[in-house]
Computed example of a mutant assay.
Amino acid sequence: MDISRVSQDGTASVHGAIEAQLPALRRFAQRLTRSASDREDLIQETVMRALRSAHQFRPETALRSWLFTIMRNTFNTEYRRRSRETVGLDDGFAERAGIAAPQEWAVRRSELRMALRRLPACSRRTLLLVAMGVSYIDAARLCDCEIGTVKSRVNRARKMLADEIGRPGAL
């Protein structure tokens, strides 16, 4: 079918003209991609976009140039999308790679909770405030004491916990 004879109102003739350009599209896709599957995907996506937009095609333009522009834009869009993806990891890899905490961690957490409960209330509260990221100044205001008192409470609480858990200097 002659490209210059594509009628303005008939998209069926555009469809036929697009089909006639498939060999040229394959050659152009071969220059852009390395693998055969990527090449076929690019051709398919280009044809799908061209068919969706067939009503926008103007007969006075060159169909081959229009199709090549669609293909180049499709390739560039896909290239940018792939460059943002993590290389070498399939979907869901991160979820499968994580392992549940071993039993030892659960035991350590339980030991820490029990040791925290045995601390004096004022020391426990001060330590937890500082551990949650509250500044010493704000912790002093919340505990209604001096900043030096907060520092000493935190230091003593850390030492008591380390001694009780059996790992001196660990906290």
Results as ranks from 00 to 15, higher is better:
Arg141Leu: 12
Leu51Lys: 01
Gly10Ala: 11
Arg49Leu: 00
Gly88Thr: 07
Ser7Ile: 07
Phe57Asp: 09
Trp66Thr: 06
Glu19Ser: 14
Glu104Arg: 02
Glu19Gly: 15
Ala106Asp: 14
Ala121Met: 15
Glu60Asp: 08
Ala20Ile: 11
Arg109Lys: 13
Trp66Val: 02
Arg125Asn: 11
Leu129Arg: 03
Pro59Ser: 07
Glu40Trp: 10
Ser13Thr: 14
Ala94Thr: 03
Arg31Met: 07
Phe75Tyr: 12
Thr33Gly: 05
Val130Tyr: 03
Leu119Asn: 15
Asp163Leu: 13
Leu116Met: 01
Trp66Tyr: 06
Thr69Val: 00
Gly133Lys: 06
Arg49Met: 00
Ser37Gly: 02
Ser65Trp: 05
Arg52Gln: 10
Leu63Thr: 09
Ser65Val: 01
Thr46Lys: 06
Arg141Tyr: 08
Ala121Tyr: 11
Leu116Tyr: 04
Met114Arg: 15
Gly10Leu: 11
Gln21Met: 12
Arg72Val: 06
Pro23Asp: 15
Leu51Trp: 04
His55Trp: 04
Ser7Glu: 04
Arg5Ser: 14
Arg153Ser: 09
Arg141Ala: 13
Ser135Glu: 01
Gly10Pro: 05
Arg153Pro: 05
Leu63Gly: 06
His15Tyr: 14
Thr86Ser: 05
Asp138Leu: 09
Ala100Lys: 12
Arg96Phe: 03
Glu104Phe: 05
Glu85Pro: 03
Arg52Tyr: 07
Arg108Val: 10
Asn155Ser: 14
Asn76Ile: 08
Ser37Lys: 01
Leu116Gln: 07
Val47Trp: 03
Val134Cys: 05
Val150Gln: 03
Met1Asp: 05
Thr61Met: 04
Glu60Trp: 09
Arg96Gly: 00
Val130Glu: 01
Met132Phe: 01
Arg26Trp: 13
Ile99His: 10
Asp2His: 05
Arg64Ile: 10
Leu89Val: 02
Ala131Gly: 07
Asp163Cys: 14
Glu85Lys: 13
Phe93Tyr: 11
Ser7Asn: 03
Leu171Asp: 12
Met132Trp: 06
Leu129Ala: 02
Arg72Lys: 06
Met48Gly: 11
Asn73Ala: 03
Gly16Val: 07
Ala24Lys: 00
